[in-house]
Amino acid sequence: MAEKKGSFAVLGLGNFGATVATELARFENYVIGIDGDDKVVNAMADKLDQALILDVRDEAALREAGVGECDAALVSMGHDLEASVLATMNLKVIGVETIWAKATSKTHHRILSRLGVERVIHPEVDVGNQVAQMMNNPLVRDFVTLGNGFYVVNLIIPDALNGESLGDLNLSKFDLRCLGVMRGTDYLGTEGDNTTLECDDRLLLLGLRADLRAFTSSL
């Protein structure tokens, strides 16, 4: 394979799989994209190192395509349960150590987890939760879940807090930790409670969901 950062296989080039494959390639990784639809594969041919028309249920075909040599693989045929499960099993057999997979139901999720998938993804649910959170509170620009109930939230400073110091926010009262302040493209870090906030600064906060919600409601 070409000398690139990493090597990945994406099985299923629908909207989700194609987006992941394209972005991985943009990050200068070696990417093999696989789908059974020739039109889909042809559309990706110029974007990936390899775009192949294969049956993901065919272990020998995946092995011959070099998928077993990849650092990681994504199984993204969420709506075809049989293909998803068999593709995952084949990836295990041919030696792919890190497997991510898309699921569309709780049952699908359980099956993939028992097959040893490292991470099971629910794109529609994940994006839906994120959109709802941001629509519910316009101050929230983005957030990332860290597991065990902890989140990092990107919170925009409203007009009412312009000129206030970081200490004035009394984050300890809400059991929150400030990871830094962004002003435009500049990262101000956490230079202490004396940092003066400006309208439209973005505050990066770490904490439990309930505590973050209580803080944003107080603004």
Rank of each mutant, 00 (worst) to 15 (best):
D168T: 07
P158G: 02
G149E: 13
N136D: 06
L161F: 12
N129V: 05
C178E: 10
N148F: 01
R141C: 03
V120E: 06
P138V: 09
P123H: 03
V181P: 11
T185H: 04
Y151K: 15
R177H: 00
N136F: 08
V127Y: 06
H109T: 15
N162W: 08
I157H: 13
L166Y: 09
K173P: 00
F174M: 07
S172W: 06
T145C: 11
L171T: 15
M182V: 13
N170H: 13
L171V: 15
L169D: 05
V181N: 15
K173A: 14
N170M: 08
D159T: 09
G184C: 00
S172R: 02
D126W: 10
V144R: 01
G180R: 10
G149V: 03
S105I: 14
S113M: 09
I156V: 11
P158M: 04
D168S: 13
T104M: 02
D142R: 10
D168L: 02
N170E: 01
N170C: 06
I157E: 04
M182F: 11
R110F: 09
G180V: 15
H109F: 08
R110D: 12
R119I: 08
L176R: 04
F150K: 14
A132V: 12
D175I: 06
G116V: 11
D168K: 05
S165L: 08
F143V: 09
R114D: 05
G184P: 00
S172C: 07
E124V: 05
T104L: 02
V153D: 01
L112A: 05
T145V: 01
D168F: 04
D175A: 11
E118T: 03
N170S: 07
I121M: 01
E124W: 05
S113Y: 12
M182W: 08
A132L: 08
N129P: 14
V144C: 08
Q130C: 02
T185P: 12
A132P: 06
E164Y: 10
H108R: 11
I156P: 07
D126H: 07
D175W: 04
A103N: 03
L115A: 15
V152Y: 07
P123W: 05
N129T: 05
L139R: 06
N162S: 07
L112D: 09
Q130I: 01
D142I: 12
L146R: 09
I157L: 07
V131E: 13
I157K: 08
E164V: 01
G116H: 10
L166A: 11
N137E: 12
V120H: 10
H109I: 13
R110I: 11
L169F: 08
V131P: 04
R114E: 13
G147S: 10
G180F: 03
S165D: 13
I156K: 14
S105D: 15
T185E: 14
N154F: 12
K173C: 02
I121V: 12
L166E: 10
D142V: 10
Y151M: 13
N154H: 04
H122P: 01
A160N: 03
L112E: 10
D175Q: 13
G167D: 02
T107I: 15
M135F: 09
K106G: 12
S113G: 14
R114N: 15
Q130K: 14
H122R: 07
